[in-house]
């Protein structure tokens, strides 16, 4: 993978003020535009077929249904932009959810139950980040190992018990300030915050440099080790927030990890335009991609696609989106 990045000429996105707004939008946010177009197209097509698809309640389901995946994909996007990957995030969310739920039912104040997954997420990913950045072990190896450790450890410790009887105050994902479900608010605020940070702050922007060309980054005085470590720790904190959204949605917490959660999160990040080669992409794209997945899932039920073919359709759509993106990028080279 790293070999390819030497050949790649993908540039980081710098503001180019000399060109018209639309053209700038297209070059800076091309993939995001494609996904928005796909979402709108889906809304129109399925909405015409069955207007209930566009009912407020269904739109709420679509936007909030994958909110925790979108949030987790923000951190994942940052990790991938710096040229790394994390396959342990699904297991991490499973472990953190169990810890958070256990604290909540044991009578700790809810802020402890909410704070613990964030802090523990940071702690676990500090270890991962250190092993990747300073011990120089490839991230896929560290996170493969970590996934196995977390998955096994979860069952060893909990014995597989489900957590039920969660206190009402703990259920933050069921809050509806101003009539908007909290997961949607959290997803939008975090995405915009992260996008703004990565575009306008030196540290945020340096992530692109680290992922795009670590050698050059080093030459210009950017310590890629410390940035990679920092990104993993941030990713851990965001995974903690995703955990809270995940664990407080329903009144039961399973002590198993949702199957293939890590793949869904990674797919959202890369379909959202984050280059797996590192160095380009935005978190807005990954959030849009997570919404697109939720919309496709909902649409397939609305248009009565035989459930047997559901996964084939989703896989086909992913492949087409990826190919379209590669074709779109080609003339720029």
């Amino acid at each position: 993978m790293a070999v390819l990045s030497q050949a790649s000429t993908l540039s980081t996105r710098k503001p180019q003020n000399s060109r018209p707004f639309i053209a700038r939008l297209m070059t800076d946010y091309g993939q995001e535009c494609v996904i928005i177009a796909a979402i709108l197209l889906l809304f129109v097509a399925v909405g015409l077929y069955n207007p209930r698809f566009l009912s407020t309640s269904n739109l709420t389901t679509i936007f909030s249904g994958n909110a925790y995946i979108a949030v987790a994909a923000i951190g994942m996007s940052m990790v991938i932009i710096t040229g790394h990957i994390d396959v342990s995030v699904g297991a991490l969310i499973g472990v953190l959810a169990t810890i958070s739920g256990t604290l909540a039912v044991s009578g700790y104040p809810v802020w402890v139950a909410w704070g613990a997954p964030i802090l523990l997420g940071m702690a676990v990913n500090f270890i991962v980040g250190w092993l990747v950045a300073f011990a120089r072990i490839p991230s896929i190896v560290v996170t493969l190992g970590m996934m196995s450790i977390l998955r096994g450890g979860l069952i060893s410790i909990t014995g597989g018990t489900w957590i039920s009887g969660l206190p009402k105050a703990f259920m933050i994902a069921q809050w509806k300030p101003f009539g908007l479900p909290f997961p949607i608010i959290a997803m939008v605020v975090l995405t915009l915050l992260a996008a703004w940070w990565m575009r306008n702050f030196p540290f945020g922007r340096s992530l692109y440099a680290v992922g795009g060309n670590p050698e050059a980054a080093k030459a210009t005085g950017i310590s890629s080790e410390r940035r990679v470590l920092a990104v993993f720790v941030i990713h851990g904190a965001i995974a903690g927030i995703a955990t809270i959204l995940f664990a407080t949605q329903l009144q039961v917490i399973q002590s198993t990890v949702p199957p293939n959660l890590e793949l869904t999160v990674i797919t959202a990040a890369v379909i959202g335009g984050v280059s797996i080669l590192g160095g380009s992409g935005t978190v807005i794209g990954s959030t849009l991609a997570a919404i697109l997945f939720a919309a496709i899932g909902s649409a397939l039920i609305f248009v009565n696609v035989s459930a047997y073919w559901l996964r084939a359709v989703i896989g086909g759509l992913i492949l087409i989106t990826v190919l379209a993106d590669m074709i779109r990028r080609r003339p720029k080279k």
Partner: peptide, 25 residues
């Protein structure tokens, strides 16, 4: 198409599994 292997095979992972499900019913 120059698609990075990780993404290309991530997509076909879903596609091939989906075909298996669809064909087998």
């Amino acid at each position: 198409f120059g698609v990075p292997p990780l993404i290309a095979t991530l997509a076909t992972l879903a596609l091939y599994r989906g075909l298996a499900e669809g064909i087998s019913q």
